[in-house]
């Protein structure tokens, strides 16, 4: 009689353990997830120049502003054609941060990634050295670094 009750108890105990294990696995599956939070940022990268902006194209007057004026105001360009008729100023800005967190049961992890955009101010001059036309180009966002 006593043995019978012991066996019943052991079976119940086994079922309890099984249910506990299955529940733990199920709970882990249910609470697993990934949270991605975009963080708006706007700052230059460490190697970028910071003195040129997209608005700089506004003070350039076609047929009036000279190349010399541009150079004295913005400094050394990042690229120049051999004939000096075209030159570019480039800068790079971090425009988006992504904070990602993964939760899985009692564990998890998190990380932060930064995405940058390249800007180019292309300026074209006539043979007399007068500003002719200019344009600002923006690249797509690219992954810059992951922390």
């Amino acid at each position: 009689m006593n043995l019978m009750s012991t066996t019943t108890f052991s079976k119940r105990n086994w079922f309890c353990w099984s249910w506990a294990g299955a529940s733990a696995v199920l709970a882990s599956c249910l609470v697993s997830g990934c949270v991605i939070v975009p963080v708006p940022v706007n700052h230059h990268t460490a190697a970028s120049r910071t003195n040129v902006q997209t608005d700089d194209i506004l003070w350039l007057v076609p047929g009036q502003t000279t190349r010399e004026e541009v150079l004295l105001r913005l400094g050394e360009p990042d690229a120049v054609t051999e004939d000096d008729l075209s030159m570019s100023y480039r800068w790079e800005k971090i425009r988006l941060g992504l904070f990602a967190a993964v939760f899985a049961g009692y564990g998890g992890g998190s990380g932060y990634s930064e995405y940058a955009r390249d800007y180019t101010l292309d300026l074209h001059f006539d043979p007399c050295g007068k500003f002719e036309r200019g344009e600002v180009k923006k690249s797509k966002l690219t992954l810059k670094r992951t922390l």
Binding site: W14, W17, V102, G105, G109
Partner: peptide
Amino acid sequence: TRRSTTASLLAFAVLVAGCATVDQ
């Protein structure tokens, strides 16, 4: 029971694996 517990712990360990970071 032990086998069941071990399997549960293994499954749990797999599920709680976190993110890896990559240094460029």
